[in-house]
Simulated scan of single mutants.
Amino acid sequence: MTASFATVTLIQGPEGLLAERAVRQLVDEAVRQRPDATISRVPASGLDRGTLAEITAGSLFSAASVVVVEQLAELPANLADDVVALATAPEPDLALILVHEGGVKGKALLDRLRKAKVEQVDAPMVKAWELPQFVSAEVRRQGGRIDRPTAEALVNAVGSDLRSVAGAVAQLLADTEEQVITRADVGRYFAGRAEVSGFAVADHCLDGDREAALGSLRWALETGVAPVLLTSAIAAALRNLGKYLGAREERLRDADLARRVGVPPWKLKDLARQARGWNAPAVAAAIQFAATADAQVKGASGDPGFALDMLVLGVIERRRDSRRSPAGCP
């Protein structure tokens, strides 16, 4: 990916971190070529014909312009022809970068830009099962090393937000010797975060461990974890378990089963263990508990802590019901 002048580049996709990195690389390369270039970064919704013409025409101090138009889906309809004209016959002193966050809005403009053969850079959403691979690539990008189990442990500790994962990699590489990240490093920096996360509470609920679930719930609330994140984590864990129960009889490969469920392959062992204590009707009933608790912590109840207690106890009781009637009978 190399920016040059007299080009238009379309960056498309929902993953903001990847899109921002692509923009930064293109801008840096353009400035390297033309250090005197004027740089403009504007939201598409704020453009009109006069502003677009002004920022793409250079300035009194430099003929060269680098223009980044963000949120392209919000471009006023009357400017579509102007943007397509720039893409069809790029100005020799203009590097135009268009950023579209994905989705169907603005599709007609995207189709016209592709027909004009603009350069394209994808910024796709990183799936849950792809996160350890992203960690490994991120570590290599910064000159470090990490093995697959350690990458999986890092994702498990930090979560699925790509910015948080990238930030964790940067922190570990800055503080570790010889640019090698080990399981001990991950445990030292991030174990505390994992212990108070909603995912830990959810795992204890699905395991039927009442004491551990209530204890981790208390600790999470005391350390500032928002109640809505806790109900969301429990609901997500239940949905994953329900999808696992529905798909495990299809004799899929682990990678295919993980994609069907929507989890990284290394989470299948946890789901397989947890599934031994559940059946589908019990999971469905527990999801209803989670939906009720979610509404309560968002305002339907004046005591989110009590609502979360009832959720944890309700989920564990549904697991007990499942074990008492393994065939799924009510």
Results as ranks from 00 to 15, higher is better:
R248G: 01
R210A: 07
V263K: 09
C329T: 14
V67P: 10
E29K: 14
V169I: 09
A286K: 00
A128P: 07
D81N: 11
E250W: 06
G187E: 10
I234D: 05
A272V: 00
C329N: 09
D270G: 13
D203M: 03
A255K: 06
L229E: 11
A30S: 15
G103V: 12
A258Q: 14
V297N: 05
C329L: 15
G302L: 15
A3D: 00
G215S: 13
D48Y: 04
A19G: 10
V196S: 11
S62D: 04
Q142H: 12
A290W: 03
S59N: 08
L10A: 08
E317K: 15
R148K: 13
S197V: 01
I287P: 03
E177Y: 00
A85C: 03
P281D: 04
N156H: 11
G58F: 07
G328Q: 07
D82M: 07
L72V: 11
D36V: 10
E130P: 04
V283Q: 04
R253D: 13
G16C: 06
E222G: 06
I316C: 13
W278R: 02
L26V: 04
L18D: 03
A285Y: 00
T9N: 02
V165Q: 00
V139P: 13
C329V: 15
A291I: 04
Q25F: 01
L79C: 09
R319M: 13
V118F: 06
G187C: 01
D122L: 10
E54T: 04
P264K: 05
G242Q: 05
V31E: 07
V104I: 04
A226M: 09
E29V: 12
H204Y: 15
L241Y: 11
K269Y: 01
L79Q: 08
R218Q: 15
D161F: 12
A151E: 12
A237I: 03
Q142M: 12
D309T: 06
G215E: 06
L162R: 01
T176M: 02
R32N: 09
A87W: 01
L308Y: 09
Q25A: 13
I181T: 06
S160T: 09
S197Q: 01
N78M: 07
D147S: 15
A272S: 11
A19K: 11
L18F: 12
E317R: 09
Q120M: 12
N78F: 04
L17A: 12
A170G: 05
R24I: 00
F134C: 06
A235D: 15
P326E: 06
R145N: 10
D147P: 10
R251M: 14
V118I: 03
